[in-house]
Design a protein around this nucleic acid. Structure first.
Lengths: 219, 219
DNA sequence: TTGCTGATTTGAACACGTTCAAATACCGTC
DNA sequence: GACGGTATTTGAACGTGTTCAAATCAGCAA
């Protein structure tokens, strides 16, 4: 009677719809199951926990983000322009999901099993990181090799910070986060300028060391 | 029979002890109440929610932090030395509470009612910010006025980042976070050096603008 | 058709955070 | 000492995420 193993996809779609409509906390597992015409325990057969649903959703957002900014990434152009477009594209994608930002963040960033640096979120994290690698690699004029190594990680961490800020941003349509992006991106220029200074190499090296520690794999 | 309004303190102490012993999620409100010799609903008379207990605890940590680094703040000395001491002091204080780091973070940083930028956490945030204001203000040689305005906020945001990292740090005794601190603090020197450059003023201004947006009060 | 095996689905239950109306304890006033 | 009002405490309940043993279903061998 019911379509066989499409059940998983059905649950996921229903969950995402209800999350958008009602927010995370207000969306009960029972509601998701009922709305999908199933029993609650069936949802637990396909997803180990409510959190796992969010995780699946977080994963999906990374894909949407890449799709949204694919043209920009392919286009070449100035680094700051690309960064600005990528961040605004991200904010475009996540608009509307602000309601369950906190759960979203916990998944993005670290409930016990879901740290951004831990194995469970390795997949979405790699997807997100890849965007920033492409962003740096495809910039014209090219980013100096010295900086190009560490820059994607730095930008990704800033991106994490922006996400963090967005979650707790209560301004209408999160326009404050938009302004923060606008004000933060230009800081990239002085950073690159420093790198070209005589003593800039040492500073960049130090930054690289810090980033290496931050991005180490968890045991 | 029991001294009446010491109840609140009793609940808080019991909660903190159990949080340390068992972690946040594993510590049930019923367990806290039972251990304190009370009924669960009594705990809800004194604290509106489990989260509020964490909030109270977070608040307490700020006091401990200040106590721990008071001597350093009073002592004068180089900015980077002071920053290093303050961060290590912080890590000393929070060691042992790593078990319920996530709940801790949600409170520090933004469940719906508890953003670090929202009214509810205004008190602990001000306490924490004050440490960084004193840190900058008391540094000898003095920090240039141009930078001294925005620097406390910048350092505080970095401090937030460190806390974030610490929460998801699974290395033994969070030694990775220690290393991250050691590697991050030296970045302060190049930053101050830039400020003294001919074009440094503009960069500092831009940084100030970004920080102003980040630290705006929520409506 | 009849069994058999494994993949799905379910209903009943558990422990949790939380709420609430009712009970109790306290304290100042008659 | 008895009374009345407020501060505190409680037991019973609700709805939640989640678990689990049992029921059902699908496909295939005899």
């Amino acid at each position: 009677m019911a379509p066989r193993a499409d059940t998983r996809q059905l649950i996921l779609d229903t969950a995402l719809r209800l999350f958008e409509e009602r927010g995370y906390a207000a969306t009960t597992m029972r509601a998701i199951a009922t709305e999908a015409g199933l029993s609650p325990s069936n949802a637990y057969y396909w997803f180990g926990s409510k959190d796992e649903l969010v995780q699946a959703f977080y994963n999906r957002i990374q894909d949407d983000h890449r799709d949204r900014v694919a043209a920009v990434l392919a286009g070449g152009g100035a680094l700051t322009d690309r960064l600005l477009a990528v961040e605004h594209g991200y904010l475009d994608v996540i608009t509307g999901y602000h309601g369950f930002g906190l759960a979203f963040l916990s998944t993005a960033l670290g409930s016990d099993p879901g740290s951004p640096f831990s194995p469970e979120s390795a997949e979405p994290r790699e997807k997100s990181l890849a965007i920033y690698r492409d962003l740096v690699a495809g910039a014209r004029p090219a980013v100096p090799a010295k900086v190009a190594g560490a820059l994607p990680e730095l930008l990704w961490l800033c991106h994490l910070g922006i996400t963090l800020f967005w979650v707790s941003d209560r301004s209408p349509d999160q326009e404050r986060t938009r302004r923060l992006v606008e004000a933060t991106v230009p800081l990239l220029a002085p950073l690159l300028r420093v790198a070209r200074l005589p003593w800039g190499g040492a500073a960049v090296d130090q930054l690289g060391r810090a980033l290496a520690i931050a991005m180490e794999r968890q045991p």
